[in-house]
Design a protein around this nucleic acid. Structure first.
Length: 499
RNA sequence: GGCCCCAUCGUCUAGCGGUCUAGGACAUCGCCCUCUCACGGCGAAAACCGGGGUUCGAGUCCCCGUGGGGUCACCA
């Protein structure tokens, strides 16, 4: 019988959804699904100082938005709960005690002050900072006495001297560490909470995780984890340290230098498909030259051997390109739905005026909105561009720019031109793109104007914008009546200028 | 600084000893299409970090440098 693959992602609830978490989650999810395995979400809330209200909800929302749902989590109960580390304290304490009994861990009563002082001295002496094992030799009776006195204590794991510790990383192969440089790590804090190191080993084992995929930043603490597995007599799961995402300046992706919040991307109007595709592309390519794929295709083709382990720069320009691509691929009605969902979400998050405006348009003039969006679709890179791109269709009055309206001609000339054009277009029958365009070109010739100038003037008159979809298409969406009204408005605007 | 990881165009990569005068994508620039913007099409510029080996032959294997990154907490 083959082993059931179980993977996990274990974010700590910090209050906002990190793209790095999404990235890890995606990889874990994909691998689990590839093998009909299970993907677990575990909440690593062992740091009480950093606890943030509602942060856990945000994690669910993020995964659920991306449609990488866990099979087990505090919300999706499975057989290996609880899935919140703060609810597993007894378990960690019990295992820490086991290590004490096995003489592979010891109580430490050193104060933070002493530890800080010690580190400072070590650094000044050019030594690597490391716990000096001050409390390692304490007798059992002494420990019992001080514990009984209510002294604050932590539990540290004992690291053996002069030993090679081998971390077997699936991507990088065997990585060797000298045990002498490994610190006697605290595994249980004085508040009774475990540190990451104990918790990750205990939980991964108890939850039957077969493949532990995590960020590269954990590689240097991996020997501690290997040792803990040995102490407990457990077999080590397959370890994979995936590359960390980087800022454009190549440092680890951070809030200050890039945008690490998934919600930032969502607000901008990146689609989940684009984001997922992009994240995958950063480290993985299915076939030569195939860059656009769904997560289902990724599941189908996934193999660790194709995973790159060079830490990639998070290149927003490429993400944008992908986003535009996915935006264009959508059917118009699907796009409308997408826009509504986006706007509703942004309003709920931020109460943002522009997004509210979009909802108003969508509700009051759905048909106009849809047509207008259709014209904007191939120009769209981000959903947040919509309010600006579609504004002129809905505006009761346009904010004209005189220079754009005139295009090098005089006010008088332009008023005249607008009037004539208006008349001719009003009479035009049939109202087709061809007849329409011919009318304008003919008139430009009559005047001896450049066709371009007349088109641009009309564009400005109808939209008060410089960049729009082709004029005729815009007028068609706007409707003949409204289009002609706008020509009239523009001409009135110019009248006001002269008088 | 110690330890660890990594190293092909600006960015993401193809390349798994000869087919590499190094291929693709994004970004950049130019041209075409064209009423503007976009889409689309065509094209240009742009890289094997350096030095030693191994080999008939090295972008591809080994070593040493160099560079970048990570990590050295009662944070994860």
């Amino acid at each position: 019988m083959t082993q059931l693959i179980r993977t996990r992602v274990a974010p700590s609830p910090t209050g906002y959804p990190h793209v790095g978490t999404a990235f890890q989650a995606l990889l874990n999810w994909v691998y689990a699904h590839k093998h009909q395995g299970q993907f677990v979400l575990r909440i690593e809330d062992t740091d009480q100082k950093r606890a943030v209200e509602g942060a856990e909800q945000v994690i669910y929302q993020a995964l659920s938005w991306l449609e990488i749902e866990p099979d087990e989590s505090p919300k999706h109960l499975g057989d290996y709960g609880p899935y919140r580390q703060s609810e597993r304290l007894k378990i960690y304490q019990q295992y820490a005690q086991q290590l004490i009994d096995q003489d592979q861990a010891y109580y430490c009563f050193c104060s933070p002050t002493r530890l800080a002082k010690m580190r400072k001295q070590q650094q000044q002496a050019d030594q690597p900072p490391k716990y000096d094992r001050h409390c390692c030799g304490l007798s059992k009776t002494e420990v019992a006495r001080r514990l009984k006195n209510g002294e604050k204590a932590v539990i540290r794991m004992k690291i053996p001297n002069d030993q090679q510790i081998i971390v077997n990383d699936l991507l990088r192969g065997k990585v060797e560490f000298d045990s002498n440089i490994v610190d006697d790590q605290v595994i249980l804090k004085s508040d009774g909470f475990p540190t990451y190191h104990l918790a990750v080993v205990v939980d991964d084992h108890l939850m039957k995780i077969t493949h532990m995929l995590r960020g590269e930043e954990w590689l240097s603490s991996a020997p501690k984890h290997v040792l803990l597995y040995q102490y407990f007599g457990w077999s080590v799961p397959v370890m994979i340290h995936s590359p960390t995402l980087r800022n454009p300046d190549k440092s680890k992706l951070s809030k200050r230098k890039g945008n690490t919040s998934l919600w930032w991307y969502r607000k901008q109007g990146y689609l989940k498909e684009a984001l997922l595709n992009f994240l995958a592309l950063l480290v993985w390519k299915p076939h030569e030259d195939q860059e656009v794929f769904t997560k289902e295709e990724m599941v189908k083709n996934f193999a660790w051997s194709q995973l790159n382990f060079k830490a990639p720069v998070f290149d927003v320009a490429k993400l944008q390109w992908l986003n535009g691509l996915y935006l264009r691929k959508k059917s118009l009605s699907a796009l409308v739905k997408e826009v509504r969902a986006w706007a509703e979400w942004v309003v709920a998050q931020d109460d943002q005026a522009a997004a509210k405006q979009v909802l108003v348009w969508l509700n009051k003039q759905p048909s106009l909105f849809k047509k207008a969006l259709g014209l904007a679709q191939q120009r769209l890179k981000l959903l947040k561009e919509i309010p600006e791109l579609l504004g002129f269709y809905f505006a009761p009055e346009l904010d004209y720019d005189q220079a754009d309206l005139l295009q090098k001609h005089s006010v008088k000339e332009m008023i005249q031109a607008l009037t004539i054009i208006k008349q001719r277009l009003a009479k035009l029958d049939p109202w087709t793109a061809e007849s329409w365009e011919q009318t304008i070109r003919d008139y430009a010739d009559e005047l001896g104007w450049k066709h371009r100038d007349l088109f641009m003037a009309l564009r400005s008159a109808v939209t008060a914008e410089r960049f729009t979809p082709p004029l005729f298409a815009v007028m068609q969406v706007l409707g003949r009546t409204k289009s002609l009204q706008r020509l009239e408005q523009a001409s009135q605007f110019l009248q006001a200028v002269v008088s």
